[in-house]
Design a protein around this nucleic acid. Structure first.
Length: 596
RNA sequence: GGUCUUGUAGCUCAAUUGGAUAGAGCAACUGCCUUCUAAGCAGUAGGUUUCAGGUUCGAGUCCUGACAGGAUCACCA
């Protein structure tokens, strides 16, 4: 039962019979009526004044009269300036509620037979995850869940950047300064241990540069000639030549890092269906370069390097293969693109990557389309903005990064302190309490990072950003816990709210009707969040829903209601709200407690 | 410098994709716990949507220009 789809044809009919004019269904749209006016949907008359040949108010009145006379759904209307506000019958709202309540698949749209791959996280194995990765991971996980709810078959992929000069830097530093330290001997998480040596490399490297500079070398020369850098480059050559000792060290250190990452992912609550490793894929794509040359999409320059000319598409010329025949970043990305398609045969492939790589993906996708890939139009870069600190951009070398493990731990601790202050853990076992702190701390963090439009850069203030009141995860979680409490009591005193026969109710309170209207919006929001790749839309919706419920909760008493039918209805309304909150939060990767 | 992008209340963010008097949260102030969880509810105050033009019935939203932030323009990834 879709209200808008039922009302719009009547408007079309109205134009035909009242104004003698044909308008297409697509052209006609309704918008929700603003809070301060009476009504549910609003139809804007202004664009049609030439057709109606009347003043805005008169036009609205004519059409409003027609709607009331010709649609059972429309019981009343009012016109303010050129806005025709339409009121929908209370019986319709009760019917809609019954439909939603009895639908076991509410919040899960039917399968659409399409496959989508979502690549996210994609960490470097030379340092631990930080705040920026948290936004990436939460976004990637959430958009995957949202697409599932939209009926897609989703594969979550993680392309691990496990090779390259940056990895060799950590390895060189470890050789020099590591003293055979291990995660066990140091008590450090594996990824943090590797990160420690990456930092040491940078520190020692800088020392060498200044020494060379003191001996009279220019800065550029010093950077090139510093022994540590030469060693790292040599190590990269050895790695590519499959030198046994180098590969052993690489495996050892990467193994530590993976253990560390696994722990972090588990804490974050994200997971993957498929791992790709750059050590496997970095040689891919050279065949595509050949293909592109044959097809005339690429061309060679005199020095033997291969290029693509995208000036017709508004971009520049771009290198796709070096003169010496070795790959650049985009070479292997072309190869990986095909690899993913061969592995899974997707209709869409989404890359969750920061907006600093906008240009790169623009180029990559244009190339794949020029090459005539069947999936070309399904490629999408989910580009998100950086997370800034009050001090500005995070810089790992300057030690201003917010570490992901630290931050999550801090959030859980804050949740614990806050919960204890409120004295809310009566009757909790120690384990239940620990689970609650985890749920609340991570919920606050995830909601904070997901509620902002992904495309926009955002500010994270460690002191102030994460709150537990207002537009926050815990507020929504709290609303759920409140309802869960009501449902427990309803079970206990034997309220029969499992039925869906609410037809006997003839009057809805405003708060009840408004709550139904919001609930009715859920699937529309899921659809929109999927189309726009924006968990933020869903986060905003869940906040609105929780707010609406809390108003209802404050205004209407449930267990003091003497009319059994109304009491059962209010419990059912609460139950559906809880289900919606729980299901919606799940799409954000956030758990909700039954007690808090 | 070229290209892309952002600019909304003191702060953090919205604004149904061009619609009504620009909305929430935080911070500030005022009420509400002998009644289902006060991590809540109700209310007050806070705005020349960076600026200047333009398009039209109508602009925070589209176009042009200026100003200010950010990203990117490697035979780096």
């Amino acid at each position: 039962m879709n209200l808008e789809e039922q009302i719009i044809p009547v408007i079309q009919k109205g134009f035909r019979e009242v104004f003698g004019h044909e308008v297409s269904l697509e052209e006609l749209g309704l918008q929700p009526t603003r809070k301060e006016f009476e009504g549910t949907y609003t139809f804007v008359m202004f664009p049609y004044l030439k057709v109606t040949k009347m003043a805005p108010e008169a036009s609205g009145n004519k059409l409003g009269d027609f709607l009331v006379a010709n649609s059972d759904l429309v019981t009343a209307y009012n016109v303010v300036k050129g806005f025709l506000n339409i009121s929908v019958a209370q019986a319709s709202w009760i019917q809609i509620f019954s439909d939603l309540y009895s639908n076991p698949n509410f919040g899960q749209l039917p399968a659409n037979g399409k496959k989508v791959m979502v690549e996210y996280s994609s960490p470097n194995t030379n340092k631990p995850l930080h705040l920026g990765h948290l936004r990436n991971n939460f976004l990637g996980y959430s958009i995957s869940e949202i697409l599932k709810a939209n009926g897609y078959e989703v594969t979550k992929a993680n392309l691990v950047n496990d090779r390259g000069i940056h990895i060799c830097k950590s390895m060189v530093a470890y050789q020099h300064f590591g003293n055979n330290e291990t995660p066990q001997s140091s008590g450090l998480k594996g990824d943090h241990l590797a990160g420690k040596y990456y930092v040491i490399f940078d520190k020692e490297y800088k020392k060498q540069i200044s020494e060379l500079a003191a001996q009279g070398q220019s800065e550029d020369e010093a950077k090139k000639n510093a022994p540590l850098m030469l060693e790292a480059q040599e190590m990269l050559r050895k790695w590519e030549a499959n030198d046994a000792e180098t590969v052993d060290l690489w495996k050892l250190m990467n193994g530590w890092v993976y253990e560390g990452f696994e722990a972090t992912y588990q804490k974050m609550g994200v997971n993957f269906d498929k791992y790709y490793y750059e050590s496997d894929t970095y040689l891919l794509g050279k065949d595509i370069v050949e293909e592109g040359l044959t097809k005339g999409v690429f061309f060679k320059k005199d020095n033997g390097s291969t290029w693509v000319d995208l000036s017709e598409e508004g971009l520049d010329e771009k290198l796709v293969l070096r003169g010496d025949g070795t790959s650049v970043y985009i070479t292997q990305d072309m190869g990986t693109c095909d690899l993913k398609f061969n592995d899974f045969g997707f209709d869409k492939s989404i890359y969750v990557v920061g907006n600093e790589q906008d240009y790169h993906f623009d180029v990559l996708f244009k190339i794949m389309r020029k090459l005539g890939r069947p999936y070309g139009e399904g490629l999408y870069h989910l580009s998100y903005g950086m997370v800034d600190l009050p001090t500005g951009k995070m810089k790992s070398r300057e030690g201003t990064v917010v570490d992901a493990d630290d931050l999550m731990h801090e959030m859980v601790t804050t949740a614990e302190t806050h919960t204890k202050e409120l004295g809310k853990i009566e009757g909790f076992s120690q384990q239940e309490a620990a689970e609650l702190y985890e749920t609340l701390g991570l919920g606050a963090l995830k909601y904070f990072l997901l509620k902002v439009d992904p495309k926009k850069r955002m500010l994270f203030n460690p002191q102030e950003s994460i709150e537990f009141q207002g537009n926050t995860g815990p507020f929504i979680q709290y609303s759920h816990a409140r309802i869960a409490s009501i449902l427990r009591k309803a079970e206990q005193i034997g309220v029969n709210f499992k039925t869906d026969g609410f037809e006997g109710i003839d009057k809805l309170e405003d708060a009840e009707r408004d709550l139904i209207i919001v609930l009715y919006d859920f699937e529309k929001k899921i659809k929109q969040a999927g189309e726009d790749y924006s968990p933020a839309l869903l986060a905003q919706y869940l906040f609105d829903l929780a707010k609406e419920y809390n108003r209802f909760y404050a205004e209407q008493s449930i267990f003091n209601e003497s009319d059994e039918k109304i009491q059962a209805f209010r419990v059912a309304l609460s139950a559906l709200t809880a289900k919606t909150i729980k299901g919606g939060m799940k799409l954000l990767g956030i758990n909700v407690p039954d007690r808090m």
